[in-house]
Amino acid sequence: MPVRRGHVAPQNTFLDTIIRKFEGQSRKFIIANARVENCAVIYCNDGFCELCGYSRAEVMQRPCTCDFLHGPRTQRRAAAQIAQALLGAEERKVEIAFYRKDGSCFLCLVDVVPVKNEDGAVIMFILNFEVVMEKDMVGSPAHDTNHRGPPTSWLAPGRAKTFRLKLPALLALTARESSVRSGGAGGAGAPGAVVVDVDLTPAAPSSESLALDEVTAMDNHVAGLGPAEERRALVGPGSPPRSAPGQLPSPRAHSLNPDASGSSCSLARTRSRESCASVRRASSADDIEAMRAGVLPPPPRHASTGAMHPLRSGLLNSTSDSDLVRYRTISKIPQITLNFVDLKGDPFLASPTSDREIIAPKIKERTHNVTEKVTQVLSLGADVLPEYKLQAPRIHRWTILHYSPFKAVWDWLILLLVIYTAVFTPYSAAFLLKETEEGPPATECGYACQPLAVVDLIVDIMFIVDILINFRTTYVNANEEVVSHPGRIAVHYFKGWFLIDMVAAIPFDLLI
């Protein structure tokens, strides 16, 4: 008679799926529990143990900040960024110097990925580790590398530091407007667009060049630039800015003055950032001319202004700041037409079709709590990747769950009947059967004279019903998954307890 339990259901295979997918890609990662103190490590794979030199037993239950890997060259700011990422709910990448158990130093890129439950609360953290440099290539500990984003994938490793954006290309926007319009339909740009040429040739750093990471940081200074100062900065030398009595002219307006920039070969870094931020506020060169004239017309309804409409929906549905990093990277690809469009465009503009998908598509409701890094690593669709929660398995109709209350009560009843059979069957065979043979035949009273025979008949009927119930009862397979398919249940029961239950259900007393 089957006594099969499996009270692990309803099970959740999400954690096993993450481990299996990460292991298949030869990654070095740990999984931490966000619900406990210090976000203790609950799993670390073999790749991480080989990377740091510690065994799994030495890593388990330690804080996922990996303070046991810190050393003299470990930056405090990087460690603080990892700790801050564990307090938030967004994906974050941090470069930090770690030390192995043998004392060797290596520069590592740590990717902190939160995993949320159905309520939107962070319950786990996945920390992925990628070695960037070994100890002989690690720089000085005073050099802070965590304020910069990861290198873009479309640049060669040897040319990542030679990417320079020439400031004269930004200063000569109005001069290039006529050349853009003359391109017409034969050019790649839309009317009114501004073409910015980027020099990728390796050259020595000069005062006129600005690194790509500095251009990325310009967006942080746009908020500090007032509207009046932006307007004066875009007017140009024809209309000098008016300053109040006793007030000095704005240095932001002076930063885009061609006369002032041409007199000296070098520009201050602050002026460069502010000038680029001011130019980015204009949607095209037409807006710059309109600002000089004193009238700013409404933005025209053409394809170039609607190019950012799908980007707005993608940004609203993005799951991490990696989408913004990807957008900034692609927006700086050289030799393309940049349409400086305000994100607050007309909502009635139709979304044009684009061959290049900048932001990841909208994630469906079932995966809105899973970050983009987890979705990318697992390579699963929205119909396959579940949320991290207890999910009731989908069972067929008329199927009994093996952990249901009805099955528990039924098993206790069958257990009592088995005990009765084990006690009274030998007793009936030894004593009652002998008395029946010696006594007179009682054929007239039937079952009324033999109450134990009636009980034995009921017990046999219950055993037959138990066999039928076992054909529709779920079970737990070797992978700790609840199986509810009727065919698989029948095959599993035939290979197991079916023969024993059938022999126990045969009414031998009635056959004798």
Results as ranks from 00 to 15, higher is better:
67 D>V: 07
226 G>E: 06
261 S>N: 05
218 M>I: 07
210 L>N: 06
258 P>K: 03
359 I>Q: 05
223 A>M: 06
214 E>N: 13
271 R>W: 15
173 L>A: 15
150 P>A: 08
244 A>D: 12
70 H>Q: 07
185 A>Q: 05
380 L>Q: 04
198 V>L: 06
359 I>V: 07
256 L>K: 14
16 D>V: 09
148 R>Q: 07
337 T>Y: 05
281 R>S: 07
243 S>D: 13
326 R>C: 05
201 T>S: 15
90 E>F: 13
265 C>R: 12
158 G>E: 05
56 R>W: 01
284 S>C: 01
108 C>S: 08
144 D>M: 07
69 L>M: 13
7 H>Q: 10
347 P>L: 05
91 E>R: 14
80 A>G: 10
117 N>D: 06
47 G>C: 01
184 G>A: 15
83 A>N: 11
168 P>D: 15
290 A>D: 15
176 R>T: 06
16 D>Q: 14
359 I>L: 12
326 R>H: 07
58 E>W: 09
330 I>T: 14
303 A>I: 08
135 K>H: 13
208 E>G: 05
70 H>I: 05
100 R>A: 06
257 N>L: 08
37 E>F: 10
309 H>N: 14
33 N>E: 10
205 P>Y: 04
176 R>F: 03
379 S>K: 05
311 L>I: 07
261 S>E: 14
287 D>W: 09
47 G>S: 11
103 G>K: 15
122 V>Y: 03
315 L>C: 05
33 N>M: 06
237 P>A: 14
243 S>K: 03
187 G>P: 03
80 A>M: 14
26 S>W: 06
217 A>F: 14
257 N>I: 07
275 S>Y: 08
225 L>T: 06
294 G>E: 12
184 G>H: 05
278 S>D: 05
221 H>A: 07
310 P>E: 04
126 I>R: 03
32 A>I: 01
276 C>H: 14
305 T>L: 13
91 E>I: 11
103 G>P: 01
267 L>V: 07
177 E>G: 15
253 A>F: 13
139 G>A: 15
364 K>M: 10
118 E>Q: 10
167 L>G: 09
271 R>P: 14
331 S>L: 01
264 S>T: 07
187 G>I: 13
261 S>P: 13
17 T>P: 11
367 T>P: 12
310 P>K: 14
59 V>H: 01
381 G>I: 03
29 F>Y: 12
317 N>W: 09
298 P>W: 04
106 F>W: 04
372 E>C: 07
82 I>M: 08
279 V>A: 14
31 I>M: 08
332 K>Y: 04
83 A>V: 07
253 A>T: 07
125 F>H: 06
16 D>R: 11
187 G>N: 12
71 G>A: 01
381 G>P: 01
323 D>A: 12
330 I>H: 08
193 A>R: 03
158 G>Y: 15
142 A>S: 11
144 D>R: 06
63 P>R: 08
302 H>K: 14
159 R>I: 06
342 D>E: 07
121 A>G: 13
87 L>P: 01
52 C>Y: 05
70 H>E: 01
214 E>Q: 06
156 A>R: 13
342 D>Y: 02
92 R>A: 13
308 M>P: 06
328 R>F: 03
128 N>Q: 15
265 C>S: 14
265 C>T: 09
80 A>S: 13
174 T>D: 06
340 F>K: 14
76 R>N: 15
59 V>M: 06
12 N>D: 10
15 L>Q: 03
351 S>K: 12
103 G>E: 14
240 P>N: 11
196 V>W: 01
169 A>H: 15
194 V>I: 05
158 G>A: 14
148 R>V: 14
102 D>M: 01
101 K>P: 01
291 M>V: 14
14 F>Q: 12
215 V>K: 08
19 I>S: 02
28 K>V: 12
169 A>E: 09
295 V>A: 14
182 S>R: 14
288 I>G: 08
213 D>P: 07
343 L>P: 12
186 G>T: 07
309 H>T: 07
97 A>W: 14
250 S>M: 15
192 G>T: 08
215 V>R: 06
112 V>A: 02
83 A>Y: 06
193 A>L: 01
284 S>M: 09
376 Q>N: 14
216 T>R: 12
281 R>T: 15
340 F>P: 09
132 V>A: 15
136 D>T: 11
332 K>D: 14
291 M>S: 09
377 V>P: 04
100 R>T: 05
70 H>L: 03
378 L>F: 03
4 R>Q: 12
302 H>C: 11
